[in-house]
Design a binder for these strands. Structure first.
Lengths: 244, 244
DNA sequence: AGGCTGCCGATTGTCGACAACATGTAAACA
DNA sequence: TGTTTACATGTTGTCGACAATCGGCAGCCT
């Protein structure tokens, strides 16, 4: 019975990432960090030779980014980086309220002890020095906590929905002006409390708490967001309006 | 000032559909109707020559269907039609409860008079003869009503989430065993009532009503669903579990 | 002078071919 | 005879080239 795989060999599986995924990551990185500005036209050939790949992976990457809503693709006119508008913040957070409400309820039921440990770990914000205010690092930690929350819900489609929202939330977190007190409040405050209440398996308290947390996060975002001064909506109409 | 486009010319825009979209439609059709069975391996070359196109559009179509969650794509192993399981129904409807709750609330605020008219029209189920029990036709009408509801919410990302759910809901509606009374209850009953209450702009009543409607729809589905007899989960593990 | 129509460059959609990879089979070894 | 390794096969990932299409510009007509 060697079929049982005697010892599982504690080794990390090697993620054989395809070129398409790699390219998508690079472009996504460029968009969320602002290297690619809203409204900018992304040309397949330019990106292809810049990354030293063929157009096919770039094409696949565009499709992926289109699914994520980071670019709009029009027939024979290529990909355009979507703009950030105040309306987008409203849309994003109204959706998050609905989705994360479901996520916490499920998480209180289905989260494994291991996931709860990880949540407390991330919620405590250990390893983050509030002194050195690295926006990128904090944004990543913020996203990571919520990502874990969605994972703990064990609901594949729910997680897929969140995956469509995540890069946008990330982009907003990176774009906004940062207030020092905010992150402390979030990490050693709300995230930690959320981790605790989810661990206690009380659905109502957790639901209420995530609503408050998102409410606070939302208001902080609109408060510290550059008031449509720098980079508004790229095009006049509804950018992500293509049904598809 | 001829810029005003003197008369808008009442002509339908010609939908220049790309081959990729066309191919995606055909394959999706095959999956939801059951022509492609769960677990079946879809080969690019076969589909390409069957549809008389190159592999590229088929590839794009696979990416789209993967995004919709209808197929799983593994590296160098192609696309596999995902299976239908009872758990999927639970996931689907828990998500719908969250999403459509938001949708009706927004619809009560933002639906245009034109959209309200269409909703009443679709809700009345005019043009549908209950006598001739055409599952396909009823399922399409059911989906169409809810689709309009999401559109009336005027929330691009919310609609995108629904677009990921729609084909699955459609598939379940087609797969289940049909009870004659169900559709009457839905159409000349609940949908019509929903259209009315949304037209009256009362958010609370609408929210409560959609919850009831989905609850009923859900229970009808699990009741009339073949109890894992015909075609269960294709593969053992969690099929749509790939985070991607 | 103003507006329309036909071409032109640029960019993407599609195609067929080659290379990389995963799986199943068979031979070789202990 | 059971296990391991190497090969053969089939499928997908990537590539470069061609063709369809879009937007802009110049020339023409009124």
């Amino acid at each position: 019975m060697t079929e049982e795989e005697a010892r599982p060999i504690a080794l990390e599986v090697v993620h054989q990432r395809s070129l398409s995924e790699e390219v998508a990551d690079r472009i996504r990185e460029g968009i969320v960090t602002g290297a690619f500005k809203p409204g900018q036209h992304l040309r397949e050939v330019d990106l292809a030779e810049a990354l030293e790949v063929s157009r096919s992976p770039v094409r696949d990457a565009f499709a992926q980014l289109h699914h994520e809503g980071l670019v709009t693709v029009r027939r024979h006119r290529g990909a355009v980086v979507v703009g950030l508008s105040s309306d987008d913040i409203e849309d994003l957070y109204s959706l998050r309220r609905s989705l994360e409400g479901l996520a916490v309820r499920l998480a209180t039921e289905r989260a494994t002890p291991d996931e709860l440990d990880q949540m407390r770990e991330l919620g405590s914000g250990s390893g983050l020095q509030p002194a050195a205010l690295k926006p990128r690092q904090f944004a990543e930690a913020d996203i990571a906590f919520h990502d874990l929350l969605y994972q703990a819900a064990h609901h594949a489609r729910l997680y897929a929905c969140w995956s469509m929202l995540r890069p946008h939330v990330f982009r907003f977190l990176l774009t906004r002006n940062i207030a020092e007190s905010d992150y402390e409040a979030i990490f050693i405050g709300e995230h930690a409390a959320l981790a605790e209440v989810i661990s206690s398996r009380s659905a109502e308290a957790a639901t209420e708490m995530i609503a408050d947390h998102l409410e606070g996060s939302h208001s902080r975002l609109v408060k510290h967001y550059p008031t449509d001064g720098g980079m508004g909506q790229a095009r006049g109409g509804k950018n992500a309006g293509e049904g598809r």
